[in-house]
Nucleic acid binder design. Structure first.
Lengths: 222, 222
DNA sequence: AATAAATTTTAGCAAAGTCTTAAAAAAGAC
DNA sequence: GTCTTTTTTAAGACTTTGCTAAAATTTATT
């Protein structure tokens, strides 16, 4: 059964929405993600339902079938592997790779993905710290917290971002906050929920509430 | 101006046909290459002509405009660069890469191509020995002959194939005739135009007319 | 040059894929 | 239980690409 690029993108959107919300993806949520009208979404979910890629009941939203989930995670796998390639081998920065990977993820060749994975050394996380599912669709889970959840004195390493916008990623670049950077929470200011941190054990920096709520940290024993 | 994948493939076909024949690509030739009806081709060439990607006059065939040629050579550049990547880095064999490269060549990102080129070490030829045009669309020209053109006693190296079919490529693999292999013509048999050669200075092998007419050789001073 | 054969174009139509607006129906909020 | 929001239906449109059959044109043959 042929699946178009658009259909694939719908599946990915439904996957992400229903995962984030912990419940079926609503028509409105999908239409927002896909930047299209609610009516178009209803059309599409009917088609995806007929192809048995999603479970769909009128007014109840959509969840992926086993088959649909397999396709969606495989897309995410491809997307993230290509991002690793683009950053590690072609020296793109982490804010430039999304659009290109968005195209590359639609290349159809089972062999290609597995060989790419091997070539890259079977990475478990992409350049933004997001987990790369394995060929069976299993994600590596990592215990991580937002910087905003760390108490004074706690230390950890930057392992990912919640906000994937170019603006945020470029901001982090300017702050030299790349994946793996060590961070120690020196002081928390209740007034504006900003936080003073020590970066790489070298320099002190004040980070805003917004930044601290979008940076994933893996705690370290001190 | 948006150009669809199909349109891009037509441009490539027109490029190859008019280059090979040294004159405009006829409707029939295009329809054969694209595996579609002549009527569909007429439809498409009209559209390409309106977009000023080809010169087209009724009953006269099609040639590429400067713009069309730029797009076509760029597609060929992308195709061949990806083939190099697939063979050199992902360890595909030369008969497996065409279909995948056929997809990859449609990825749109000027930066990607240039970085890929650099990553691969600016290769001038693809795994089948075909020249890779540079960013300006210039092909490296190489003085090469068909094995069938070599006289007894002449030596050279395998530098390319004319026939790109899987069958031929796999046949060459079995004969251990890869790019760069040295070949000496020992004897030519007029009867069936077969030729006895010495491969890599080691083993003797009889090659058929068909094989010798599809293998490009670069002559060597003996 | 006239005729036959081959090629190419035109005309008309079709199907997939995706989207839209406007109105109706259902669900959720107060 | 009414009001608001969400979702669906209905009807259709548009693009892209393709097809067949018949007409027009070019090329080849006698």
């Amino acid at each position: 059964m042929e699946i178009s690029h658009t259909e694939e993108n719908y599946l990915k959107a439904i996957f992400k929405i229903s995962e984030r919300k912990g419940k079926p993806a609503s028509t409105n949520a999908i239409s927002k993600a896909m930047e299209t009208s609610a009516a178009s979404v209803t059309d599409m979910v009917k088609r995806l339902s007929e192809k048995e890629l999603i479970h769909y009941e009128r007014y109840r939203g959509a969840t992926l079938t086993e088959n649909g989930a397999r396709i969606a995670t495989h897309l995410i796998r491809k997307h993230r592997l290509w991002e690793v390639f683009l950053v590690n081998n072609l020296h793109f920065s982490w804010d430039e790779v999304h659009e290109i990977a968005e195209q590359l993820e639609h290349i159809k060749s089972p062999q290609l993905v597995e060989r790419l994975d091997e070539f890259l050394g079977n990475p478990k996380f992409d350049p933004h710290g997001d987990p790369i599912p394995d060929a069976d669709g299993n994600f590596t889970f990592r215990k991580q917290a937002l910087l905003s959840d760390l108490g004074e004195g706690e230390t950890g390493a930057v392992v990912g971002v919640q906000d994937h916008t170019t603006a945020f990623l470029q901001y982090l670049d300017r702050m030299q906050l790349v994946l793996g950077t060590r961070i120690e929470v020196l002081e928390r200011f209740e007034y504006d929920e900003s936080v003073k941190v020590k970066i790489s054990g070298e320099r002190e920096q004040l980070l805003s509430k917004k930044v601290s709520q979008n940076l994933f940290i893996q705690r370290e024993a001190v």
